[in-house]
Design a protein around this nucleic acid. Sequence first.
DNA 1: ATGGTTGCTTAGCAA
Length: 266
Amino acid sequence: MLIATWNVNSVNARMGHLLVWLQARQPDVVCLQETKTVDDAFPRAAIEEAGYHVAVHGQKSYNGVAILAKTPIEDVQRGMGDQVLDVQARLLAGTVSGVRILSAYVPNGASLKDEKCLYKVAWLSGLRAHLDERYSPDDPLVVAGDFNVAPRDVDIAEPQKWHKTVLAHPSMREAFARVTDFDLVDVYAAHHPQGGNYSWWDYRTASYERGVGGLRIDGILATAKVSGRAISAHIDHQERAKERPSDHVPVLMRLVAEPTRETSDR
DNA sequence: ATGGTTGCTTAGCAA
């Protein structure tokens, strides 16, 4: 089972790349972020023709999340059940093959002294509260998305440049850690302790084209029931080299087909 | 300290 997350920066603008990538990669589950469209304008038919069930939670112009899956998506839930935090479409949940999947688009926060940064912290806090309320660390649960936080220095090409920004400031890492403290494993980090690979490059500095910079601000968090099945994690950085790419690339993890038996060596 | 680019929407915002 292959599970992926990708901030596509407009699903309609990225349809060409998305369909080619789905065909080549054949992921079983895909969490999308920044779809940037209302649900009526989501390119559902073309994705269904590619062999996927589709669940969407979008809004006009900004934000927007989706889940694609080869098998049916059950018990779809939009938002986290918070009147204020749900104004922006940033969280979508669905159950696929018995695994609860959350597609999450954490607020960027703009700058440390911007009000948006307070919203970012509140949103992460709300997500933790939502996990506490609705789920147990014993559930098979995945939270995949754009975290807008690089959890470790090895997730940043030039860490010192980013420590005073919203993507890597200690206060932001703390806010993010409160989510993972629910008992979620950062699967990419667990499989790549040395880091050095990234999922986002700023358009404005052309850092990807220049072969410098990059941050891993996207990832897949999972409870033990799921992380114990993860046999590999990968970043599809070649997507960033295409013409008119998203500024983010896909992050993936592969699970063994069947849950491993905890008592198999008994 | 500022600006650089992209996308949505059409001047300005968000990232």
